[in-house]
């Protein structure tokens, strides 16, 4: 495994953007796990952070806004030997892609999903996002957002994700560790990375992180779904991070498909498929 897995492309994120840290964490996780770059696909949507695939020398697919998970599902089912890592923002995943999020979670494909959650729309210049705090003032909500924010942790657990974690963008090492655990987990792993957007989110800053975030201790039972859910409900002002929930041994979606047992779908020989036995049914 080469040390530098960068593509040579240079990100143009704002100075201080959490995306740099998440990119660094992801690259380090891939390197340390020794994943083959040609067997790794990074799928993203649209948003500042969704440009990530361009910066890593693996296969990448920067698709449509909110449609990361269906694309990743199509890739995974076509070649389940690939490492499929999905990355996208909070608007992409919990907003426009919310329906896919729910349904992909319950399928439990062996996919790792990293959400760059900065509680704001950056690329479109600062509108509130599905995870913005109630009352968040933005150009589209000058009087403050009226909705309750999406809770990524409880949403993931209730939707059926089998690995649910939170990290934050001021801790590259821990974020890397969470991503590594997510990739190693067999099943649908959600890693919500709470991140800074110094340009558009003036509330969530370094001081906010220091004052409000705390790491889950060893006393937290990650195998206990109800307790994990309870921990997930702890939101403001004190926000826990770490692995909330982990369910091991649950069969993945692809394992439930007998047609994938012998070989991956893409390796099937299609040069001379004999359909003559099917014709009999129409006689």
């Amino acid at each position: 495994m080469e040390k530098d897995i960068g593509s040579g492309q240079v990100p143009t994120w704002c100075p201080g953007c959490g995306d740099y840290v998440i990119l660094g964490s992801l690259k380090a996780a891939i390197t340390e796990l020794g994943l083959d770059l040609h067997n790794t696909v990074i799928v993203s949507g649209i948003g500042c952070g969704s440009k990530t695939p361009h910066f890593i020398r693996a296969y990448g697919f920067e698709g449509l806004h909110g449609r990361t998970l269906p694309v990743a599902t199509g890739i995974k089912l076509s070649n389940h030997e690939l490492n499929v890592i999905v990355i996208g923002g909070d608007g992409d995943g919990y907003g426009i892609g919310g329906n896919h999020f729910m349904h992909t979670a319950r399928r439990n494909l062996n996919i790792t999903y990293i959400i760059q959650n900065n509680e704001v729309y950056g690329l479109t210049k600062g509108q509130y996002s599905p995870t913005s705090m109630k009352g968040f003032v933005s150009p589209s909500t000058p009087e403050g957002a009226l909705e309750e924010p999406v809770n990524p942790i409880t949403l993931s657990i209730s939707a059926g994700a089998t690995f649910v974690a939170r990290s934050h963008s001021m801790d590259l090492g821990y974020t890397k560790q969470m991503i590594k655990e997510g990739i190693q987990h067999k099943g649908f792993a959600v890693i919500d990375v709470f991140q800074l957007c110094p340009t558009y989110n003036k509330i969530i800053n370094a001081q906010f992180f220091r004052e409000n975030l705390y790491k889950l201790g060893p006393d937290h039972d990650v195998t206990h779904k109800v307790k994990a859910f309870e921990k997930g409900l702890e939101h403001y002002p004190k926000i826990p991070y770490g692995v909330f929930y982990k369910e091991e041994g649950k069969p993945t979606y692809e394992e439930g498909l007998p047609q994938l047992k012998e070989k991956v779908l893409v390796k099937q020989n299609i040069s001379a498929v004999d359909i003559s036995p099917l014709l009999k049914k129409f006689r």
Binding site: G74, L77, N99
Partner: peptide
């Protein structure tokens, strides 16, 4: 089962088309 085909009923047509794009990107006729 007979022909080694994966049939995925999706949550909506948006997912269906994006999955098919993903499958074709991965090299499967979809």
């Amino acid at each position: 089962q007979q022909y080694g085909i994966v049939v995925k009923q999706t949550e909506d047509e948006i997912a269906a088309m994006n999955m098919v794009v993903g499958a074709n990107f991965a090299g499967v006729r979809a």
